[in-house]
């Protein structure tokens, strides 16, 4: 592990943290265009964050230390996740620290803290959001694991850099199983990131809310951290998707010239995925909470089919 690796790691981590609100701004902008609205500025998420950071913190009387710790823990988890996922290069020192399963565990840690903090004040909305979030996560996790199974089988590894290596260096081949896994992954991404059709990120004060309901009692810098972490999570999920299904362009080990190229590729891919996400969100309607099991069951079936097809025709 040389100095340059550490530098690369640092750059990628900071880049992800800095860019995450921009990605969210881009998705919002695309969505506004698609829905014939005039879009807010791309930089709007930054302005919101800055405003929130400057505001005073209002805490409920009975709020405990858990509520105050949770935003920091959640944010730190997402930063760590952003350091692990190969966004521009594969030889990151931290990427050894976690394979995809450990990443899932990391997300779970953040989620549990968020769900616990939501119960802290003891409002009806908070507990409602908390239980819905945990439910969706419980159903999404098997599907997500099955999604990871197929690339892990092809790459003989659950570590993201190795999977990227397998796909970028091997001969170009059609993997029908990966197509299935990709569709399933998108569905899980929608569910895990509180997007339409599972949750609506732009609702507030609605009985159907999930993610927002958990954040109701937050204000000031706590809310800023939570929102930022949420944007980071979306970006990390996109990055995982890119690493698994569109890995071309990510810089190989010791390929320093490839890094700027990888940056450009990353921006293009993120923009494309963001636009696609906005399109999906425009086309779909939010579903009832008890339709979610069916939705995620479908994702699960697709992932299982993908895996079976890998055994059937690719092995």
């Amino acid at each position: 592990m040389s100095f340059s690796h550490v530098l690369l790691q640092l750059i990628q981590g900071l880049l992800a943290v800095a860019l995450a609100p921009l990605v969210l701004g881009w998705v919002n902008q695309c969505r506004a265009w698609l829905q014939n609205r005039s879009a807010p500025s791309l930089l709007q998420p930054y302005r919101v964050l800055l405003k929130l950071l400057r505001k005073e913190i209002v805490l409920a009387h009975n709020a405990s230390w858990l509520l105050r710790c949770a935003p920091y823990v959640v944010f730190a988890c997402m930063v760590l996740a952003a350091c692990i996922v190969p966004l521009v290069a594969t030889d990151l020192p931290f990427s050894l620290a976690a394979d995809v399963i450990a990443l899932v565990g990391l997300f779970a840690l953040a989620r549990v803290f968020m769900a616990l903090a939501a119960m802290d004040v003891g409002t009806a909305f908070g507990t409602l959001g908390s239980r819905r979030e945990m439910l969706i996560a419980a159903l999404a996790e098997p599907a997500l694991l099955m999604v990871f199974f197929t690339p892990a089988l092809i790459g003989h590894s659950t570590a993201l850099p190795n999977i990227v290596e397998t796909f970028t260096t091997g001969p170009l081949q059609l993997y029908p199983s990966m197509a299935f896994a990709a569709v399933a992954f998108i569905m899980v991404l929608l569910a895990e990131n509180a997007r339409i059709p599972v949750d609506n990120p732009s609702t507030h004060l609605e009985l159907t809310m999930v993610h927002e309901a958990m954040l109701l009692e937050y204000s000031g810098r706590h809310l800023a951290l939570m929102d930022w972490a949420h944007a980071l999570k979306l970006m990390v999920y996109m990055a995982i998707g890119i690493a698994l299904f569109l890995p071309w362009g990510i810089a190989r080990p010791h390929d320093w010239l490839g890094v700027p190229l990888a940056l450009i590729a990353m921006v293009v891919k993120l923009m494309a995925i963001g636009a696609g996400l906005a399109l999906l969100e425009t086309l779909a309607a939010k579903m009832r909470i008890f339709k979610v099991p069916e939705f995620l069951g479908m994702a699960f079936m697709l992932a299982v089919l993908g895996m079976l097809i890998h055994f059937l025709v690719e092995a």
């Binding site: 913190i57 209002v58 409920a60 409002t123 009806a124 409602l128 908390s130 004060l205 109701l216």
Partner: peptide, 25 residues
Amino acid sequence: WFSVQRRRAPAWDCGFGKRNARMQD
């Protein structure tokens, strides 16, 4: 960089106002 004060207030709870322990899950 952002020195702000902290304040305690009744829970926001969507402005619902009245709340008691039996409203929790």
